[in-house]
Every structure is written in structure tokens, then in C-alpha cells.
Write a protein that binds this DNA or RNA. Structure first.
Lengths: 339, 339
DNA sequence: CTGTTAGCGCGTTCAC
DNA sequence: GTGAACGCGCTAACAG
């Protein structure tokens, strides 16, 4: 018998103590005397015993593991959400497993399947851009285990959603540009199939209307907000030759647009002022005078995991909160005055 | 009996077929007739059967899961390594779980414990900065399961290491600065307890010597390479008032140093040329004329997981490769000539 | 405080 | 091709 292969029965046999007692001792149950506990722990060390959670999980039907499913860990916003989740979860003694959907529905389904068959105790998910059907989530629900949706809300009934007030954030962002004297503001927008981008567009439009600025449909560019899209947008902006402000619904494309504009000797923010969501620390660095919308990512992670653990541990969820909307913050560094 | 609670026994009972046959059918064994397979699969769907991998894993002592342990997922280098790992692993039908040590030894140990007790089939790890002892890895080895170390090598004997040729990369980086006319080059270096930073420093020194430039100990700043360290370094550089080049062993501090220097009206790279490791896409964006060292992160991920899966699937590892050293690439965009 | 009994859900022998 | 029986390692329930 090599090291690391011993089971509680080996300890039990070696000591003439029943395996159930060994199990209790190893779990630090108060129902075992200090003395036998010590004997058992010593023997466990001696035999190189390594706990097998698989067996324990099977028996208890609990894994002490929760999962986060999100598009990409490399995005700063999501990395920060993870940090918030892990802080809460680790304190509560839960493991966190991280899964990347890459914004791909097929992959998301596959991930859900393995999470289901591995019986994780709960799931926090920011659904893929492509996702419009929800059966794969309902299958998990059939196990009577909780799901919390964050950032990108789910249209399923009775599900927990945590999101940012995108309408208000966009309204504030656009109003900021207006207050700096911008009158021809382009909006880089994402797919209107996605609630989040609909809200961001709505906030932009409302702010214009409120300030008596005509809403020009040619100033709204809908794309996937990739780097390429950002460059394409920048080119269109140069062609228009009237633009003095950009409000971008994400920063990937905002940054590449800025890069391109700069390469064409446009000054940011003197010639064209830019406000964009701050998904990446890059935004803060690319141009010290850039204004960004700071998302409460860490807080969102904490809330998501707290809510999830709550549901895991209380059969009858006392909290009646089904949705939670967080505020964002406009970070104005050194914005130029244009008036 | 609610949905999602059915087991193979429920299918077995409902159909009057033994559970062992059901198990075989569900695993698509060739020893079950097409006809019964179909009956079983249909019934499984009808009952909302969800496979319980916990039971299967316990029985087979395999989890079809491999783990990556690394400091932080938010670092571009590591995020890219993960992408490489996942590509290989998913093709081979393995799940990947991602764990962040946050460069903290205590956390790393805790992670190893849960990976051990959850019996993951293999581990790829980039050890924490603080890690100097290796017992927690040996415990996992006792299970006769493989570990592959990447980027930050492990001093344990007979272990698989995959790393970058840091000496050569640093030599090239420094030589590049020299070729551009720099004669007073500062090196932002990390802890000399870490092999990787020792190698980077060595490459810097060798290049200077080779080109007949005096090695000035005051030009070597050792720090934790944080943002604060970068700013502190920049201040020292300004005080020295002779520096015309910086070779930074990481980019976090390089970027903050550049930011600070720019804020003091120093031109990059006209006044001071900078070369740094490209852990973050930020490096490419911060200054279009910056030269960076591109690390083969994706390739490293692919190699790490291939090597790991190899060991998992061959009891007698045919490959004699124990270490693998990869080359990096110097990305020169638009570097100024200073001569 | 400790022992006995009986599984958790699945996969793997063997038989036939 | 299919069935019967056993066990993976651990723990809950009940005794005592």
C-alpha cells in the first residue's frame, strides 16, 4: 500500500476503532473524545491518508463547490467579479470553479452539462451573447439547486438577477459629454438583442432629448464592439467630419477607435471627447483625460455569491429580493472644456 | 419524484432492464443492442435523468478534470495560457478548473488540498512567488497523478517544467536598446529568490558586458514590480538624470513608470527607450513605439496540457521530456533611433 | 462517546 | 446481449 492510498478503513483497522468514528474524528465532530481524535489523526498522518471528497460528496449530495460561468476571465470586469465572489465563498468554506463560455452558446451548454453532472451546489452566471434559450438552465434547476444571473440578466421567470443600472449610467455619460459642449455625439452600440445594450442606447437617447439635441440615427453605430468594429467606427466618424463626442457602450471598441483617431492626429479629448465603460484598466491608462464609467464589479461578485450561498443554506429563502440593480460611477479625470 | 432526481435504477425499474445494462447503454457501450439503447435513452429523457458524475468518479477513480493553478487570471499572460490549455483539454474531453493562488503560499496550499481531495486527474501550476517549499505538491504526487509546472519552474526533482528562455529574451531586449544607442540602461528587476528574475537580470548583464558597457549596480532596481514600485523607479531614474533606456522584467511596473515619466514631460522612446515583457495587451497600447517581449503563452498552455494528458493516459510515459524551454519574440514597432 | 447497519449512484466483474 | 452481485470511500441514523 503506497502513500496517499489509505482510506478511513485502513485507519480503522490499524487502530481497532470503527470507521464511522474515524470519519467523525476526521471531520472534527464534537462527539469524539480528544484522545481518540488525536490517535486517529496521528495514524492518518502516518499512513499518508488523503481525504476523498468524491465519496463524501456522493454520500451527502453536496460538493461545497459553486461555479461562476462567464464569457472570459481576461476581461477586467469579470476578473474583478471573480475576486468578489471568491472572497465571500472562501470565507464560507466553499470552493469556486470558473468556467469560460467565450460568449459561445454551445460551449455554455456543455459547461452547464458538466456542472449538472458534477452536482455543484450553485451557479452564478453571466450568460453568453448568443444565448436566447434557457433549457440548459432549467435542467440545473430541476436538481433544486440555485442559479444567480449577474450583469447580463436572464429572462426566465423567478430567477435572481443582479445588474447595473445601464440606463442611468448611459444617461449620465451622455449628459457629461453634453455639459462639456459636445453636440454631435456618436454612440457605439452593441446588439439590440441584448437588454444591456438596449438600456445603454436608451440612456444615450434620453439624455439627448432632455437637452434638446436632435437624435440622429446616423450617429448610432451598432456592431459587435470588437477591436475591428472600433476602427471601422473611427473611420466613419472621420468621414462624418462633424463629430465632437463619442459615447461607447463598451471599451474594447472605444479604445481601438481612440488609437485609430490618434494615429490620424485627432486629439482626445480636445477634438473629440470620449466616454466609455471601464471594463479594462486599459481605459484609465490609454489617456489620462478620458472619462470612464466605473462598474461596481467587486461588489457585484460579493452580492452574487452572498445571494447564492443564502439560497444554498436556507431551504426557505427568507429574502424576497429577486433582482438587484447597482449604480455605476462616472470617473472624470481631466476632461477638457470645449465651450 | 421530481425531475432531475432519477437514477439509473429508476430507468432500470421502469423498463424491467437491469441497471448494469442501463449503465452500459448510457455509456454507449457496444455490448448493448441498438434497440434497448434507444428504449433506455428515451426513458432517460422522459424521466429527466441527469448523470451523476460523483458516483461515476468514485467508482472509476477518475474525474476527467484537470486543474490549472496560477497567480491571477486577470494577467493577460495567464489568461492566454488558459486559452491554450482549454483548447487542448476540451478536445480530449477533459474539464479544466482554474484556481487563483494570488501569489499567496497559504492559498496555494489550500488549493492543492482541495484538488487532492477532489482527485483531479492532473495539475498544471505556475507556483506562487512566495512558494519555496514543496510538500503540498508531493502529497498530490503520492496519488500517482501528474503535475506539470509552467512559467515558474519547480526545483523538485523529476518534475516536468515548461518555461521561457528568460536569459535569451533579456539578452535580446538589452541588446536592442544598445543597438538603438542607449548606454545608460536601467533594469527593473524582481526578487532574486525567483529563478525567472535571476535569469532576466543575467541576460541584461551579459548583454552589457558583451557590448563593452560597464555594469552599474545603481542601475539595477530590485522590487516587487508593482505599480508603486514602477513609480518609485521612475522617480529614481529622474534623479539619476543620465538614463536613456529601461529594460523592465515585468510590465506592470514598466507601464506605471512610463506613465509617470510622461507626466513629467519625458518623451518615450525619444528621451528614454523602454523594453518590457508583454504580459498585458496594455503594453502594446500605452505607447505605439514601445518595444515588447512577446511570450508564447498560448503555445505554453498547449504544451502543458498535452504533456499532462500524455502522462494521464500512458502509464509508462514514453516521452523522456522533463523540461521544455520556449523562445520569446521581440516585437519592435516603431522604435526611435537615438544615434 | 463509540459501534452497527445501511446505503449514496454508478460501473465492473462474472455468469448465463 | 443481459442479469446478479459486489464495492468505490464515506456518512447518516440509530443503538448502546
Amino acid at each position: 500500500m503506497g502513500k496517499g492510498k489509505a482510506t478511513i478503513h485502513d485507519i480503522s483497522n490499524a487502530l481497532g476503532i470503527d470507521s464511522s468514528t474515524v470519519s467523525r474524528a476526521l471531520n472534527d465532530s464534537p462527539r469524539v473524545s480528544k484522545k481518540t481524535k488525536k490517535r486517529i489523526l496521528d495514524k492518518a498522518n502516518e499512513l499518508g491518508y488523503l481525504r476523498n471528497s468524491l465519496a463524501s460528496n456522493l454520500r451527502t449530495n453536496k460538493t461545497q463547490t459553486i461555479a461562476v460561468v462567464l464569457p472570459r476571465v481576461s476581461r477586467h470586469f469579470f476578473a474583478t467579479v471573480i475576486a468578489g465572489i471568491e472572497e465571500t465563498a472562501y470565507e464560507a468554506g466553499y470552493n469556486v470553479i470558473i468556467c469560460q463560455s467565450l460568449d459561445n452558446l454551445k460551449r455554455e451548454k456543455k459547461i452547464m452539462n458538466t456542472l449538472i453532472s458534477n452536482r455543484v451546489d450553485g451557479i452564478m452566471i453571466s450568460i453568453a451573447m448568443e444565448t436566447t434559450s434557457y433549457e440548459h438552465f432549467e435542467a440545473y434547476r430541476d436538481l433544486e439547486k440555485p442559479i444567480v444571473f449577474f450583469d447580463r440578466p436572464c429572462a426566465l421567470k423567478d430567477c435572481y438577477n443582479i445588474k447595473i443600472d445601464n440606463f442611468q449610467a448611459s444617461y449620465n455619460a451622455t449628459e457629461h459629454l453634453i455639459s462639456k459642449g459636445c453636440r454631435h455625439i456618436v454612440h457605439l452600440s452593441g446588439s439590440q438583442d441584448i437588454e444591456l445594450y438596449r438600456q445603454r442606447k436608451k440612456g444615450y437617447i434620453e439624455a439627448l432629448i432632455k437637452h434638446g439635441i436632435e437624435v440622429n440615427p446616423n450617429y448610432i453605430f451598432e456592431s459587435n464592439l470588437s477591436e475591428q468594429d472600433g476602427i471601422a467606427s473611427a473611420k466613419k466618424i472621420l468621414e462624418l467630419n462633424t463629430i465632437d463626442g463619442i459615447y461607447s457602450a463598451n471599451d474594447t471598441s472605444a479604445i481601438s477607435a481612440i488609437q485609430y483617431l490618434k494615429s490620424q492626429n485627432i486629439k482626445i479629448p480636445e477634438d473629440i471627447a470620449v466616454v466609455g465603460f471601464n471594463n479594462d484598466p486599459i481605459s484609465a491608462v490609454i489617456d489620462p483625460s478620458l472619462t470612464t464609467i466605473n462598474q461596481p464589479a467587486f461588489q457585484m461578485g460579493k452580492i452574487a455569491s452572498t445571494l447564492l450561498l443564502d439560497q444554498i443554506n436556507n431551504e426557505f429563502s427568507s429574502t424576497k429580493i429577486v433582482s438587484k440593480v447597482l449604480d455605476s460611477e462616472l470617473i472624470i479625470r481631466n476632461s477638457s472644456k470645449r465651450i
